[in-house]
């Protein structure tokens, strides 16, 4: 596959010269075909990272490489073809009067041929379960449906990387579930990397890897299991652990020696079952 990754090399960024640094010497790599969750307190620099990844902002120090190509003003259109982005507010990202027009918009910007566009519209709406809505008006859809169309618009350009910047934050639980299912399906069916920026801890448990930001620096990089084992430190930096981790900790305190850090209900139930059945 060669050089398919996003690489941050010693990146520092601030919005103005007299303002404090929002990112300080940040280095990390997003590899091919992985799902990375990015978490951190409000103002920790997560969204700034997202904007740097597809050239909405440029760093003052360090460099960002997408598939080996530096992100600069002259490469930005190539980069945006590879790095798609879905934002938080479903109402702020529609331009077309119909769902179909909207999905076509991104492709038009990249000058794709009409036949290919038609094919991609069908394909990407199918991928998010929104086929049949081609002629609907986007503003009449539910929040979850809007975000699925936004994901379809990004998919249509066939990016290598998709960034979801708190894409589920403004949705109700139903919409949130829709999006998480869509994301999982798309990620398993296609050859692409996902970067989800989120406060939702259940979302984090499903990712392959987590990058935790704190005050503009990387605080930790690891698997969800490694992360939620650090309960106290997480609370110190304004984050929290999921219910299952909290209960697992209390069980250990109560004298039940769990063998591993459970990530979901089923894993914890299996542990409990082991104790229950061995006499």
């Amino acid at each position: 596959m060669g050089n398919t990754q996003i690489e941050f090399r010693n990146v520092s960024f601030r919005y103005q010269e007299d303002m404090p640094w929002v990112l300080k010497d940040v280095s990390f790599t997003i590899y091919n075909n992985e799902w990375v969750a990015m978490i951190g307190h409000n103002g920790s620099g997560k969204s700034t990272i997202a904007k740097l990844m597809n050239g909405l902002l440029f760093p003052q120090e360090g460099e960002i490489l997408v598939d080996g190509q530096p992100v600069t003003a002259s490469t930005v259109w190539d980069i945006r073809r590879k790095v798609g982005m879905v934002f938080q507010n479903p109402d702020n990202q529609f331009v077309g009067t119909t769902v179909r027009d909207d999905v076509a918009f991104g492709m038009e910007n990249h000058g794709m041929a009409r036949d290919l566009m038609l094919e991609r519209i069908t394909e990407s709406l199918e991928a998010v379960g929104m086929n049949g809505y081609e002629r609907h008006e986007p503003h009449r859809l539910s929040g979850g449906q809007k975000q699925r169309v936004a994901i379809a618009s990004v998919l249509a350009v066939s990016p290598q990387y998709i960034i979801l910047d708190e894409a589920t934050a403004m949705l109700d639980p139903k919409g949130r579930k829709e999006i998480m299912e869509t994301i999982r399906e798309v990620q398993s069916a296609r050859d692409l990397s996902l970067i989800t920026i989120t406060h939702d801890l259940l979302e984090v448990t499903q990712a392959d890897r987590v990058i935790v930001m704190n005050k503009g620096e990387i605080w930790m990089e690891g698997t969800p299991r490694e992360l939620f084992a650090k309960k106290e430190q997480l609370i110190e930096i304004g984050l929290d652990t999921p219910f299952v981790s909290k209960l697992a900790d209390e069980l250990k305190d109560a004298g039940l020696p769990l063998t591993r850090e459970p990530l979901n209900h089923q894993e914890l139930l299996e542990e409990l079952w082991t104790f229950h059945s061995t006499r």
Binding site: F243, L247, L251, A254, L256, L272, R279
Partner: peptide, 17 residues
């Protein structure tokens, strides 16, 4: 609370011992 629940669970699964 989660702590109370943990104690109850521990009692239940270890009960036999």
């Amino acid at each position: 609370s989660i702590a109370e629940l943990a104690k109850e669970l521990t009692r239940i699964v270890k009960g036999d011992r």
